[in-house]
Nucleic acid binder design. Structure first.
Lengths: 190, 190, 190, 190
DNA sequence: GATGAATGAGCATTCATTCAT
DNA sequence: AATGAATGAATGCTCATTCAT
């Protein structure tokens, strides 16, 4: 009749699986065998399936977790004083964050499998948060008016994917970011 | 009208296999089962292997074919009158061409499997051709001086990857290209 | 009475696979498709691979199992009173045992694929055990001095291979053994 | 209307295929791909099939060719003066000849595929020729009476198979032959 | 709930045989 | 007759998913 930590155990296992999957997907992409993830998590394959009905669902959960944090961060930037700076902070965050994870880059770029509904929603949320920042920046004159959030995301997720191949080249990253930054400036009034 | 091989022209079959592989790889990436490619080509699996000793070799041939055309085109631009325009023509070509092919985008971005030697060489050739155009453009004052060809390729292959998801949105492509174009301009002397 | 796995005892399945492989290899050599072995064992192909990472590993295990028993038997003969009799017991054992198994005959004769390391070691152990018996028999005057264990093994594994084709002819076996037995006697002192 | 060497060409091709197959089978056994044989022979795969309806038929022809020569040799020994010496010459021939050819050893030992009819007949012929030699030797007191040709063949084809693994060890061959030779002697009358 | 063994469809690749040229 | 391209069944092996314990 004692309160055995059943629920706690389950929750802990779920977390461990998620963490292991994050690592594994980030390192090797969707191709990593599910058994590997289970082993990394220190659980049986069956346990993974108890928490996630499908490998794809696990992938979804991993991405969702990451995207949610991005969205939160983006929202927290929405009230910053300097709208232009906030927008570029967001973009830099995007590049930095995705750089360490092949999976996220894939998900954002739409590469890989067809994105399940939840991921699409989360991307949608991210776009909306980004759009808020973009609009504020545009109104503040920090960003040219003739771009929308889709274009911005395409530019940055694309760059992220490309930079993922050269993780140890900060000069390259700097150049890429500089071009994007300058290209997003409003035209010089003459 | 039947799909059976009417005349066993080896060359024709090779071409059909290559074409089928191009389609298939473009549509689904390296993951397409080789049997599917064979079926699309209307040949047996063995025939694919007669022409390409390995699935990877087939992929290589497909990419090589595309890359070679790019390189040729790039080289033909090297003598154009307006160096800046030639450079941006090249970039537009890159985006347009890669847009229809996940495989090429992957290959250029370095995503997917480790690129076999020939592809690496072809990429090298493409970089060199691009570099020539870039340098001429920079000397002509059409492009900022502080970027190198690696950065440019990262920006454009990345954008290509991202745009691949939205093939039917010319406005988006236009915006993306505009940002990259403007971002590559030399700083305005004031 | 059904062939489906009633209780998923891994050990039992492993044993069934091993037994099936023994039969199959004995009957048809290394050429048996692994699926056939799986079918004989009443398991899926994947199960075979769970227990043996490779077809070759399975073969190795089968041979190893047999060889080990031979070695044990040979060693147990090393302390017998009559050294000559012990030696010929060993040889008879070899013929009898290998008779039912093309695979063992192959392995001993070195036919078939290159023997993996473990088999080579086990053969080495068998040779050593045989050598002990041979030397004792030679010292006791039961066997001619001008043969070594390699020659003896060549004679007996060879005979085994040949007799394998006529498993139901005890008279033939008897003749063969008699010739070998007499040929191994020391020269008659006159 | 000239007499083009059609027949001659065909015959030459057949011979080349046979020679190539002999080499290939001797070196690698039945496992050698038919295309390799065709390439070695400098003809197309189709040409091989024009002369031999089946890979197995080609194998059969190769073996038959070898066996026939053995039979001829054996028959030529049947009239030799020293019946015992003739018999042992035959046996030595067997060992020497088969030693260079995995395929023949296989065929004689009955290893490999089920022997097609023709091979069985040729083996039969070889047995008969051997039996003649054996009987003459037994009558001359050169060989023990209680063995038949089947036993002798088992002993020698077996030894051949085993020795095939150690082609560069003449001392070993010598020992093996010595044991068989002595074992075949008639018992010493005391 | 957790475990990890079992399943079996799926994939790249080989090769004997056929057939268009 | 010869060629060698095409065929397609077969094989070893992987891995997402299920299920007995």
């Amino acid at each position: 009749m004692s309160t055995r930590p059943l629920r706690a155990d389950a929750a802990r296992n779920r977390a461990r699986v998620l963490a292991a999957a994050q690592e594994a997907f980030a390192a090797e992409g969707l191709a990593v065998p599910l058994d590997d993830i289970a082993r990394r998590a220190g659980v049986g394959a069956g346990t993974v399936y108890r928490h996630f009905p499908t490998k794809e669902a696990l992938f979804e959960a991993v991405i969702l977790d990451r995207l949610t944090r991005f969205v939160e961060h983006a929202r927290s930037l929405a009230t910053a004083g300097d709208a232009g700076a906030a927008f570029f902070d967001f973009l830099r965050l995007l590049i930095t964050g995705a750089q360490s994870s092949k999976d996220l880059a894939d998900a954002l770029a739409g590469t890989g499998l067809a994105a399940p509904g939840l991921i699409t929603s989360a991307k949608q949320a991210l776009y909306e948060a980004g759009q808020t920042l973009l609009e504020r920046a545009q109104q503040a004159g920090g960003v040219r008016d003739d771009v929308d959030i889709a274009a911005v995301m395409a530019l940055f997720t694309g760059a992220t994917t490309a930079l993922l191949q050269r993780p140890d080249d900060p000069a390259l990253h700097q150049m890429v970011f500089a071009v994007l930054h300058d290209g997003l400036q409003p035209p010089v009034a003459d």
